[in-house]
Every structure is written in structure tokens, then in C-alpha cells.
Nucleic acid binder design. Structure first.
Lengths: 206, 206
DNA sequence: GTCTATAAGTAGATAGAC
DNA sequence: GTCTATCTACTTATAGAC
């Protein structure tokens, strides 16, 4: 062990800093110089290119990493659903909270997607619909069950799924882009209001 | 009348093309050359600078224009609300449809804001919260009235306003970023599902 | 108001020494 | 794996002729 540093440490730094910086300033807003600085290299000397073929290759690796992270978070999420309590309201609260956590974990990546929408179609093209359609389909089939079981009053399950999904995504984006919580509403208060709409509380009020 | 062209035609073209191109490719993704091309000027000759001091000055004028458009759309929207029908469900449907139309009218501008978030803080900084907080406050006070009048079952009016707002914004963004309607849900179906949640239809089903 | 020519800066990327 | 030096291309912006 003559080398004090682990293999690939700089590469790792470039990936981490790249995600954060691309999310913050966009792909064009971050120069290779900036990336070298962030990874502890002397800026402007081109050492970046010993780790990645190009700036775009770095982006590709970042994207693959985040997609993998998304997959793992989805798995965790589905396990959370199966560990049920019998109480449908409580289950929905847990489910929605998990979804907001997943969105929060992907914050930088979502910012990046918003900035670079339409660019890099080969890399990002299918990603937008994958990100939404998949969890929308899951939400839809769950709500269909709920309606069949009379947990939720009858209606258009797929449209309802779109409403729930849109609300959660919209709330996350509001928090992201408008600083803190819009109107001072925190996650718990938001989720409670949404669940109350879907499954009215038994007592009537509050 | 010796001049066949109206004064400011090129300037007008630059403003229009600028909004569309900045929304599509971002501020850095559009060169002055591109803007000159789009406005019918010979690209790369710098005629752009006879109309605007800098690329950033063009952006500033575009933003002021869109903010003014937003103000006018908000006025139209509020008039739509006051022309009421007595039927709260029908009123909500009209209201929500208007809000989606406003968002659609601002599509390019919203794309631009998403791309350039965090940059140009002097120009765009206050805009994000203005865009959301204002209509959120209005939605909140309307829902408070509805709850007082028993049109909507009791609950947290402000949190409910955040849910409604998030759902509409989230739905618009889904349509924008994921191509067509998510899950094949169109505006009418989405709005109906949202209104059904707030004010259950008298008949029970459908 | 448009075109010609050009300045000054910065970007991504490469070759080679250590 | 990092640093030195450098190439090429492109960007915003300006000065001046027409």
C-alpha cells in the first residue's frame, strides 16, 4: 500500500460534483475548469480528460448512476407499501411520504432534467416518460383496487392517479423552485390534506 | 410612406424568436447568430446590437413582456370567476380550465424559467414566488369561503389550496415535459377528477 | 437599419513531460 | 494520475462603410 488515495477517488469526486453543479448551473454553465476545481485538480490543466472522454461522457455516467438510484428507491418504496396496516388512510400517508422522499433524493437530478430538457435526446429522451408513467401506472392500479373495495368513492381511477401524481410532483417542484414550502405548508400538512380528499376521515372534521 | 416595413419589425421578431428559442434551448444554447437568423438578418454580422444593447437586455425585455401578459391573463381569469352560475361544481370547472389555459399560454416562459432557475437573480429572482404565491393566496381564500358555506367538507383550506395548485401545475408540467397527456388523461378528465374530489357529485357515481 | 470586418475572451479538447 | 502548453472553434460585442 504505497498510495494513500483510493483508486478512482478523483473520478468519484467528478461524478458527485458534476451532478450537483449541472443541477445548479446547467451543463453549459459548468466548465471543465469548474469541474476540475471542484474535484481538487488544478483548474484548466485538462486532467479531467484522464477520467472521462468528454464532458458529455461525464453527464452520461451521472445519468446512469441516478437512474440506478431511482430503481433502488422504487424497490424500497414498494416494500413500504406491502408492509400494510389494514388502515388505508395510514397506508396512503406512508406511501405519499415515501414518494416525496424519493423526489427529494432525486432533487439535483430533477433540476438537471428540467434544465436540459430537449437536449441529449439519446441520453434523456425516454427518461421523462419513464420517470412518470411507471409510478403513475402503479398508483392507478392501487386506486382501482381502492375503488373496488369501496375505500375510495367511485370514479375515474386513472384520472385520480394523475391528480395524485401531479399534486405530489407539483408540490415537490414548488418547494424546489420557490424556496421553502409554498404558503408555509409542510409535507405532513400537504399529505394529510391530500389523503383527506381521497379517504375522508371518519370523525368528519380535522 | 417610403418605407415598406413597419418600425420595429425586426425588434419584434427578435423578441418573439427569443422567447421561443430561449424556452427551447436555454439562454446559453441560443447564440446571437441564431437570433439574427431567426429574425431574418444575416447571421453573425452583429445587426442584433442595433436593437438590443446585449443578449441579456433582450432577455430582460422578454421577461417584462411575459410578466405583463401574466398580469392580463390573471385579470381575465378573475372576471371568469365573478360571472358565476350558482353551481359551485360548474364554477370550479371553469376556474380550473382557465388556470390550465393560463399555464399553456405561458408555456415557453415557464420552460425558460425552469432552465435558467438560479441565474439572473435580479431579473428572475422574485418571479418564482410571485407566480405561485399570488394565485395560491386567491385559491386559499376561495376555498375558505367554500368550507364556511359547506360547499366543501371542513379541513385545512390553505393546505387544500396547495394541493389544488400543485395538481394543476404538476399536470401542466407533465404535459409539457412528457409530451402528450400523461396516461392519456386530457384536461377535461383531469379537471373532473379534481372537482369530484373537492365537491362530490350529487348522484354518487360518474 | 443592415452589412463588413474584426477584436477579445473563453470553451472543449489534445500531446507530451514528469 | 497530474501538470504544462497549446490548438481550434466559437462566443459576445464593437467600429465603420453603405
Amino acid at each position: 500500500m504505497t498510495k494513500p488515495r483510493k483508486h478512482g477517488t478523483t473520478r468519484e469526486s467528478l461524478l458527485t460534483a458534476g451532478l450537483q453543479l449541472f443541477g445548479e448551473k446547467g451543463f453549459d454553465g459548468v466548465s471543465v475548469k469548474d469541474l476540475e476545481s471542484a474535484a481538487g485538480l488544478t483548474p484548466g490543466r485538462g486532467s479531467f480528460y484522464r477520467h472521462f472522454e468528454s464532458k458529455e461522457a461525464l453527464l452520461a455516467d451521472i445519468v446512469h448512476r441516478e437512474v440506478e438510484k431511482l430503481r433502488q428507491l422504487r424497490e424500497l418504496q414498494q416494500r413500504g407499501i406491502s408492509g400494510s396496516l389494514g388502515d388505508r388512510r395510514a397506508e396512503l400517508i406512508v406511501d405519499f411520504r415515501m414518494r416525496l422522499i424519493v423526489l427529494a433524493q432525486l432533487k439535483d437530478f430533477i433540476l438537471l432534467l428540467g434544465r436540459e430538457y430537449g437536449r441529449f435526446p439519446d441520453l434523456l429522451g425516454q427518461l421523462y416518460s419513464l420517470l412518470v408513467e411507471e409510478s403513475l401506472a402503479q398508483e392507478g392500479s392501487e386506486l382501482e383496487r381502492d375503488i373496488a373495495n369501496q375505500h375510495i368513492r367511485g370514479g375515474d381511477a386513472h384520472a385520480l392517479a394523475a391528480v395524485v401524481q401531479s399534486a405530489l410532483v407539483g408540490f415537490h417542484l414548488s418547494k424546489t423552485y420557490f424556496g421553502s414550502q409554498p404558503y408555509g405548508i409542510d409535507d405532513d400538512r400537504f399529505i394529510k390534506a391530500l389523503v383527506d380528499l381521497l379517504v375522508p376521515p371518519p370523525g368528519g372534521k380535522s
